[in-house]
Structures are given as structure tokens and as C-alpha cells.
């Protein structure tokens, strides 16, 4: 497990370094994800090895957002003053983005014959 964790951290570190080095728009952890994925694709044995640790971290992914969420306490006044506009913008844009994404996905999947979801 420590080996797997070390590899995850190394991928993140390499991602951060690449992101800074080439001033890429993608952040370190996202590049790290790509890096780890390529490693697992090249060495399938590595994939089976990483699986328990990776799934363990992701099982409680929601927990990791709690500290940033509590940051709301420092912005109550600002949120109060602009609450309506921010609230409407957040709710409407999220609903619209989900609708646009899902409809486009289904439409293009049908168009290109790329079906094959569990229940498609």
C-alpha cells in the first residue's frame, strides 16, 4: 500500500513539475493522473497493484472537499450581498451544463454508433 501511495505522490510531483516547467494550463494533479494512467496502460501488472489503494482513496472522495467547503464561513457577508445573483448563476449554469453535456453525449454516441454503456 505504501508503494502504491508513493507512486501516486511521485506522479503528482512529476505532474506539478511538468505543469510549472512548460507553463501548461493543466494543473499538476491532472497531469499526474494522465501519467499514472499511461504507466498502468503500459504495464498492466501495475494496474492490478494500484487498484486497492486507488479505490481506497476514492471511496471517500467527498470527505476531501469538506475543509474547502467550510471556507464559506469567511465569505458569508459577500455571499449575503450578492447571494441572489450568485445563487441563480450557480444553479442555472450547473443545470444547463449537465443538460448540454448529457444531451450532446447521447446524441453523438447515437450518431457515431458508439453505444455500449451498461444500459444504453
Amino acid at each position: 500500500m505504501i508503494h502504491a501511495l508513493a507512486l501516486i505522490l511521485l506522479c503528482q510531483l512529476a505532474g506539478e513539475a511538468l505543469s510549472r516547467l512548460f507553463a501548461l494550463p493543466a494543473p499538476g494533479p491532472v497531469l499526474g493522473m494522465g501519467l499514472l494512467f499511461l504507466l498502468m496502460l503500459t504495464v498492466p501488472r501495475l494496474g492490478d497493484f494500484m487498484r486497492p489503494t486507488g479505490e481506497g482513496i476514492l471511496r471517500h472522495l467527498s470527505l476531501l472537499f469538506v475543509p474547502a467547503g467550510v471556507g464559506v464561513v469567511g465569505h458569508l457577508r459577500q455571499l449575503g450581498e450578492n447571494g441572489l445573483a450568485l445563487g441563480v448563476a450557480l444553479v442555472a449554469s450547473t443545470v444547463l451544463a449537465i443538460a448540454a453535456g448529457v444531451l450532446t453525449f447521447v446524441f453523438v454516441a447515437r450518431l457515431t454508433g458508439a453505444t455500449g454503456g451498461d444500459d444504453a
Binding site: 503528482q12 494533479p29 499514472l36 494496474g47 458508439a114
Partner: peptide
């Protein structure tokens, strides 16, 4: 841990790679 968890998303991506590959255009 948000950073390492983002990296760990490579695991489900790898597990589902055959399905993902067939859906590049919709993606």
C-alpha cells in the same frame, strides 16, 4: 489529499479504458 485523489482517478479510468476508448467522439 485532494491532489493524490485526483491522481488516483487514473485507476477507474484504467479499469474502464475499453469502454472509454469506444466513446472518444461523444466524450
Amino acid at each position: 489529499l485532494l491532489g493524490p485523489a485526483t491522481v488516483a482517478l487514473a485507476v477507474p479510468l484504467w479499469l474502464n479504458w475499453p469502454t472509454v476508448r469506444r466513446a472518444v467522439l461523444p466524450i
